[in-house]
Design a protein around this nucleic acid. Structure first.
Lengths: 313, 313
DNA sequence: TAAGCTCATGAGCAATTACTCATCATCGGA
DNA sequence: TCCGATGATGAGTAATTGCTCATGAGCTTA
């Protein structure tokens, strides 16, 4: 509980600093601590993600790019974050927008089913979520959460999500990619898995990441594929993957690995809002293919990526 | 249009600053302006209200309510604890805050006089106090500590306080309410009592509880009043009491019982910080009256009560 | 065209914030 | 009990930010 007490003070200090506009000296006086401690409390609050800053202004260029993407690729939803050309984080900007969009869905009073894929951007977005009490909703994982070594896969985000929101959660106790097509079929046949897959197919909204197929692709990092597997996928024309499903430049599933993918199928954009969260030049081919092939009908990306998508062909 | 363009830049600068974490120097470089201009853009964005900061912690709402109460009722101090809807204790939260505020006063190096009233919340707050060595201060009781049966009144807290802190203590060897106005006057005339009352009137800070006037009011429980007395007080318009002094909805002393109250007068808020510690729906009318009538100028309560106070009228 | 006005700009400086380091207390395990 | 690890603290200092002021460009008006 000592941590709780500390976070309390941190939140208080952050409130006094950011909301009430006190200097850290004033905060120190009010809280009866030294100036340095006040500073530490404020930065603790920031580090813990207690402080959420939102810029309430649709930057014209971003809005414009989003509009163009919607028109050009028949999207139903698109949001574009400003690009910081030298930002070190690969998720900055899109994480905040992703969290905002998730929050809009979660705030709905009528019960909905939210499906969640995998990926670093998605994880970053979920970590930006505030606490929301929404027991009416269900959150269902689109993909397994078991690493080849038996541990929980790092980029599986459903547990991070249920840390913050009080919805019913349906994880998938599976690997992302099984060792063979037969094993995949056997796993899928389990009644509990079947029900989860079924529920995912009827989700109202799905948030997914898009993975590149480099040698340091997330699926390789997590140990599901070897660099050789990825090379064969590329030879088969694959340019990206969405929770394991590899697809080619037209957005058609490609490569024999797909026979071993144990994830739910990608929900149908006719029934579900499938929203991709991804940015960056390395993911560009995958993003382009996914929106061109209508694997997804929503996109959250950044200015540079949006511009690149529009410059293509 | 020029304003629009400017706001756009301001939003972008603010985004780079608050979300992406750039320094204003970096922003200046990226936007191709001078550092000073970058600073101006950021502060313009703030001034225009483009920047919304949210503290994602229960404490945030509390601080906000506290600020509203201060503004609405002209308080000099207010603190609001989070409400735990299923807490069984009637003092949880406010006890900790009360103790924290007491501690802030006690930690001062210059000698002060601290006056203490009565009540369960106050007792709970004192029990949260750490041991503090502060022989420079004086603690003076605002009210008697003798029950009608001659024992020490349970809710008198000055001894609990001096168990923990090494300050000079000035209790009041009196009942809270005398059996007649004459007896009250006689008791008050004793030189020692006179000095104590005099000291209390010059206290720097006073911590008081607010009692409700139900049939199980603390004054009834302690045997000072009969349920009939309380009913008559209510008929006279009284809605609450502070160490014996009953007052009506405007915060004016009300009811003939006040002629028999042997406690010190409630210190003047012009000279003393009079801080009430109270929460709960049953005490709500009393709290509202006390702050509206400026019997107190400080309040420690919980979220639910704070909200209810603000919702009134 | 010149005077007067507004407003943007950058220099310089003061205030504020962030970081580093040395010290000290606390705590769990040998 | 001692020891090392961990974490909290305050001093000192570097980095960053906010403010003021003088300058000058651009624009309006006499």
């Amino acid at each position: 509980m000592t941590t709780n007490r500390k976070l309390d003070d941190a939140a208080r200090a952050a409130w006094l600093y950011y909301v009430a506009g006190n200097t850290q000296d004033q905060i120190a006086t009010k809280l009866g601590v030294s100036r340095q401690s006040a500073q530490r409390l404020v930065s603790l609050a920031v580090a813990e993600g207690l402080v959420k800053v939102r810029i309430d202004h649709p930057i014209a260029n971003c809005l414009d790019l989003a509009r163009q993407l919607v028109a050009r690729f028949g999207l139903t939803y698109c949001d574009v974050a400003p690009t910081d050309p030298e930002a070190t984080s690969s998720t900055i900007g899109i994480a905040e927008l992703g969290a905002a969009e998730m929050e809009r869905w979660l705030r709905r009073s009528e019960p909905i089913v939210i499906a969640i894929g995998t990926g670093r951007s998605l994880r970053a977005a979920v970590e930006q979520l505030p606490r929301i009490d929404c027991p009416q909703h269900k959150v269902v994982s689109l993909t397994g959460n078991i690493s080849p070594d038996g541990s929980a896969a790092f980029y599986n985000v459903i547990f991070s999500m249920t840390d913050r929101i009080t919805a019913r959660a349906f994880p998938m106790p599976l690997p992302v990619i099984a060792s063979s097509a037969e094993e995949r079929d056997m796993l899928r046949a389990q009644p509990m898995i079947r029900r989860t897959v079924e529920m995912a197919s009827r989700a109202d909204v799905a948030f997914v990441g898009i993975g590149e197929l480099d040698d340091d692709a997330p699926l390789v990092m997590d140990g599901f594929l070897t660099p050789g597997d990825v090379a064969r996928l590329r030879e088969a024309g694959a340019v990206g993957e969405i929770f394991g499903w590899a697809f080619d430049a037209e957005g058609k599933l490609a490569g024999s690995i797909n026979e071993r993918v144990a994830s739910s199928p990608i929900p149908d954009v006719g029934r579900t809002s499938v929203i991709a969260i991804a940015k960056g030049p390395r993911k560009l081919p995958g993003i382009a293919a996914a929106i061109r092939g209508h694997l997804v009908n929503g996109l959250i990306t950044d200015e540079a990526t949006a511009q690149a998508l529009l410059n293509q062909e």
